[in-house]
C-alpha cells in the first residue's frame, strides 16, 4: 500500500516536470529562457521516473542500468543545451530588451574593435557577430 503510494507520487512528480517543460516552452518570451524550462526540469523528471521504476521492481540488478540511464542524461543534456544556447546567442535569437545585463556582449564588442591575436586570445568572441565559423 505504502509502496503503491510512493510509486504513484514519483510517477506524478515526473510527469509534472514534463508539464513544466511544456508550459515553459509556450510561455517564456525568447529562445534562451525557453531552454531553461525545456532541458532542466527533465533531469529531475527522469530521476523521479527511474526511481519509481526501481521502487516498483525492488530488484538490485536493475539499479546499474537505471543509474546508467540517468548518468547518460547528466552527461548529454548540458552539452546539447550549451550547443543550442551558443548557436542561439550567436545568431541573435535572444531579446536584448529582456536582459538586465550582458557581460558577454562587452567582450564581443571589444574583440570586434581591434585585433586580438597573441597569447591573450580568447575563444569567446570568435564569430560572436554571427557564427561565421560554422
Amino acid at each position: 500500500m505504502v509502496h503503491d503510494v510512493v510509486v504513484s507520487a514519483l510517477l506524478i512528480g515526473g510527469a509534472l516536470m514534463s508539464l513544466a517543460a511544456g508550459i515553459g516552452l509556450v510561455r517564456f518570451p525568447d529562445l534562451l529562457s525557453r531552454m531553461h524550462a525545456a532541458t532542466k526540469p527533465q533531469v529531475l523528471g527522469l530521476l523521479l521516473l527511474l526511481l519509481a521504476l526501481a521502487v516498483d521492481n525492488r530488484s538490485w540488478i536493475l539499479v546499474p542500468v537505471l543509474v546508467l540511464c540517468w548518468v547518460f542524461q547528466l552527461l548529454t543534456s548540458p552539452v546539447s543545451a550549451h550547443m543550442v544556447g551558443r548557436a542561439g546567442y550567436r545568431t541573435r535569437h535572444l531579446r536584448r530588451d529582456l536582459l538586465t545585463l550582458d557581460e558577454l556582449d562587452d567582450v564581443v564588442a571589444r574583440a570586434a574593435d581591434g585585433d586580438h591575436g597573441g597569447p591573450g586570445r580568447t575563444d569567446a568572441p570568435d564569430g560572436g557577430a554571427g557564427g561565421d565559423r560554422t
Partner: peptide, 18 residues
C-alpha cells in the same frame, strides 16, 4: 527559429520516455 523547434522536439522525446 529552427532552434525553438529542436528544443520543443527534444521535450517531446523526453515525454515519450516518460
Amino acid at each position: 527559429s529552427i532552434l525553438d523547434r529542436v528544443l520543443a522536439l527534444d521535450v517531446v522525446l523526453a515525454i515519450i520516455g516518460a
